[in-house]
Design a protein around this nucleic acid. Structure first.
Lengths: 227, 227
DNA sequence: GCTAAAGTGGTACGCATGTACCGGTCCGTT
DNA sequence: AACGGACCGGTACATGCGTACCACTTTAGC
């Protein structure tokens, strides 16, 4: 968060003459260390969900993980690294969940049924768990957008997009909607856009609208040859 | 940015016995004051574009506007208010630009031509001005997402969505694509999603893909009756 | 058991932030 | 001309931040 980010791997200015391979324990050697690192990462993800990008501070992460402040700088070389790893974890979790929900859909559904199922798979769940989902997704999109300013996150942003598109494409193929990548992309972008809008604006009819527009689009794409 | 946000309108604890109507000059009485307020707002918008949400600090705004720090707290009761007004201004500017570009499109274009024109109207411009556009849009989306956590911004977020959809709907109608709101929504969401993706991920073929997918969708929607 | 590395936790520093305060100046009104 | 509110600008304060540091304890490898 502080200004100078480049030239961080500068000269070793500590007392010891030889550089003992920066102790940054990216992969801790001991079991307890690995657990601690995971706890910090989990705490970072949680904070990301609850309070967004700016909520992930060293102190907040340490407090949430029940660890001393210094643990955060010991296991992660910088806040940026911590955030980036949390982002990657969030993406992986979210894609796993989406994939799992999408795979329950089988058979040869009508466009309407497919639209409903896809909406359920890609959107936040209903009920009390929905608010947690909503915040998680909000955090994810926040980080996604951050990738537009921070090249270090760009690759992760692409993973997210590709992952979503792949889930959509596979679902379409499996349920008898053999379509090219373009059509799958259209459906994926539509789904993501509609759900993001819902996340932010919280309009009452959003879920229904998503199903309707999606069904319409699926029907239209199917009617058009060679997509 | 500091913790307690509620109960901010608490008791008047200043020396004077009577509350002289909080001096918060929301609409300055004097010309110079109005100019200063506008300058601060413009500076906030600029910072929003360049550095995103977190870059809009009292000090940065004041410095950019060439005014003393205290001016920011004089004309705006809080940072939140400053940010909200900047957001509103950004939305209005962006919608004006989009509308102006969209209105140059006339006649009865093919789906491909329409897709190209809409992409040009709604997406960032090319050339050296494109990077500024890119950052501006990034800032806008950042704030848009923030509206998911801050109810005070939600109405503005809806204005943005509605504005985009309206531009799309009017453009479609004017160019001989009489369609219902659902179809316009589909096109609008698709456009917004694709451009946002481009903003963040910066993939080479994104502009071409946007045109292709949009043309395909327009064609498909036109082929389907009653949309 | 000994030694070096890994891990630990308390503390400190420098900086930027949001916001409050206050003595002063400008200006429209009477 | 004078009065009162709008406006001005400098400064101060408390807080939270990222990161560095360092003496200490635990663990792994010989």
């Amino acid at each position: 968060m502080t200004a100078p980010r480049a030239a961080s791997q500068a000269e070793d200015t500590t007392g010891s003459a030889i550089t003992p391979e920066p102790p940054a324990a990216a992969r801790p050697a001991q079991e307890r260390g690995r657990r601690r690192r995971a706890a910090l990462l989990a705490a970072a993800v949680g904070l990301l969900e609850q309070g967004g990008f700016t909520a992930v501070t060293h102190r907040a992460v340490a407090r949430r993980a029940g660890l001393p402040l210094a643990a955060t700088t010991y296991y992660f070389t910088s806040r940026d690294q911590l955030v980036a790893e949390a982002f990657a974890l969030l993406i992986a979790d979210e894609l796993d969940g989406m994939r799992a929900r999408a795979e329950t859909l089988t058979g040869r559904p009508t466009p309407e049924d497919l639209a409903t199922a896809l909406s359920l798979a890609m959107g936040p769940r209903a009920g009390p768990a929905g608010e947690a989902d909503r915040l998680r997704r909000l955090g994810l999109w926040e980080l996604y957008l951050q990738a537009g300013r921070d090249p270090a996150l760009q690759a992760l942003a692409r993973d997210w997009t590709d992952g979503c598109d792949t889930v959509v494409a596979e679902t379409l193929r499996r349920t008898g909607y053999p379509c090219g990548r373009p059509a799958a992309r259209t459906v994926g972008v539509l789904l993501a856009g509609l759900w993001m809008e819902h996340l932010v604006e919280g309009r009452p009819g959003a879920a229904l609208e998503a199903r309707t527009l999606l069904a319409q689009t699926l029907r239209a794409l199917r009617a058009l040859p060679g997509t």
